[in-house]
Design a protein around this nucleic acid. Structure first.
Length: 112
DNA sequence: GCGCTGACGACAG
DNA sequence: CCTGTCGCCAGCG
């Protein structure tokens, strides 16, 4: 977990199924509070990290599926989320505040 | 080597 | 409250 991107991937990998987090929360946790765009870029390159990264569990702070167009197919991101029990209506996660997974609160580097 | 752009978000006006 | 601007940093023309 020395590299910034490695830390991003590592955190995203800790997101449990049925929960979702935001770019900003992850950016803040890895030490780049204003680097939310970098998290998005990291997700774009996540396939080259070597390990599986559940990028579909990362959305913007409003719970919108802003990155759905980067997944193959028409609605793969939404299907993956709904397959885990998350309700998505019109590219918007329902009850986002309830399923939101905050690394600052539910995770610490000791467990990684 | 420069400037624009991007899966975002905070802050100022 | 809503809109505009800036920060973040890497990739590409």
């Amino acid at each position: 977990m020395s590299d910034l991107y490695d830390r991003i991937y590592e955190v995203v990998r800790q997101i449990p199924a049925g929960r979702a987090s935001s770019y900003g929360a992850i950016a803040k946790f890895v030490g780049s509070p204003r680097g939310s765009r970098m998290v998005g870029w990291a997700m774009n390159q996540s396939h080259s990290s070597g390990a599986y990264v559940p990028a579909h569990r990362v959305v913007n702070r409003l719970g919108m599926l802003s990155g759905k167009h980067h997944f193959p197919g028409e609605n793969l991101m939404q299907e993956l989320l709904e397959n885990e029990g998350i309700i998505v209506v019109d590219d918007q996660i329902q009850d986002f505040d309830k399923i939101f997974w905050d690394p600052m609160k539910e995770l610490d580097w000791d467990s990684i």
